[in-house]
Simulated assay, not measured.
Amino acid sequence: MTDAAPRRRGRPSRTEAEQGPAARDRILAAARAEFSERGYDKTSVRGIAKAAGVDPALVHHYFGSKDEVFAAAIEISFEPALIVPAVVGEGPEGVGERLARFFFGIWENPATRAPMLAVIRSAVTHEAAAKVLRTFVLRRLLERVAVDLDVPEPKFRAELAASHMIGIAFVRYVVKVEPLASVDKEEIIAMVAPTLQRYLTEA
């Protein structure tokens, strides 16, 4: 009896493929955990597959490259189609507070904090992570918020808002500088919201 021919990279077995969405969800959950714990550079497709209990070929089958599985693992934290109307739907008044509440709410939720930590920690040293940060935080969320508010220079305003919030998140959740690291979220929102309001609405 001869050995079976080795499987080609990216071509999962029929058994693995039939696991369908459940296998894909396990891969995404494992990827978020691995990227959050190890950072981008130290995370491998093989490690993600092992954590998810699947063959590495299945990871390639669903997502292609390591960059693509990273982006997919992070994207779940952002749903612009739902977020943008919730932030701007009530008009310009109060948009700064709604945006701050949404953004810091992501960080306060352990389920969505993990992928955000992975992005922030890795963006400084790896372009793939920086691209995810630009794509999901800036272009797909903040720029759309600014455009929907119909203000001059929406991209520039979005970048100002992003730099403000990401800077605070880095100091609070990554570096954990006190007292910012332990102050109540509501205090941060109260201080940050007027600045975001000015960035996004003042002519």
Rank of each mutant, 00 (worst) to 15 (best):
R121Y: 09
S36I: 03
G94T: 07
S13Q: 01
R24V: 00
G89P: 13
K131R: 15
E187N: 13
R198H: 10
A23L: 01
L138P: 00
T43I: 05
D25Q: 07
P12L: 02
E16H: 00
A30Q: 04
S65D: 14
A161G: 10
M1V: 09
I188Y: 10
A203L: 15
A72L: 12
E153D: 14
I168L: 15
A81N: 01
R157F: 14
E153N: 12
E159L: 14
R9V: 01
V88A: 10
V177I: 09
T125I: 02
L117E: 15
A86I: 07
E187W: 14
E34W: 00
V132H: 10
V54D: 04
V124A: 13
T125Y: 06
E108A: 11
D184G: 03
R198K: 11
R144F: 00
G105V: 09
R24Q: 03
G96P: 05
F70T: 03
A31M: 05
R113Y: 08
P154R: 11
G20P: 01
V171I: 15
T112K: 01
A129V: 01
S65I: 06
M165A: 04
G20D: 12
L180E: 05
Q197Y: 08
V147N: 01
I106A: 02
T201H: 13
I48L: 05
R11I: 07
V59Q: 14
Q19W: 08
V151F: 06
H164A: 10
A29L: 06
F170I: 02
A29V: 04
L160N: 14
A33S: 09
V132S: 15
A49D: 04
G91Q: 06
T15G: 04
A81L: 03
G94F: 08
F78W: 08
V87L: 14
E16V: 01
E187A: 12
G53N: 04
D25P: 00
K66Y: 12
A52L: 07
A52N: 09
Y40W: 13
L196Q: 07
A190M: 04
M191A: 15
E202R: 15
E18N: 10
A4S: 13
R198Y: 07
D25T: 03
A22T: 09
G94S: 08
E108F: 01
P115Q: 08
R157S: 13
R139W: 13
E143M: 07
T201F: 11
E178G: 07
V177S: 07
V132P: 12
S77Q: 09
I48F: 06
A5P: 07
F70W: 08
A72T: 08
A4K: 13
L58Y: 08
E108V: 00
E202W: 06
K66W: 10
A161E: 08
V175R: 10
S36P: 04
E79D: 05
I189V: 15
R144E: 11
A193H: 05
I166V: 14
H60S: 14
T135V: 11
R7L: 11
V145Y: 05
L28V: 12
R24E: 04
G96I: 07
F136A: 12
A128F: 05
A193F: 10
E202G: 09
V175D: 11
A22G: 05
K42C: 03
G91K: 10
A33K: 07
A100T: 03
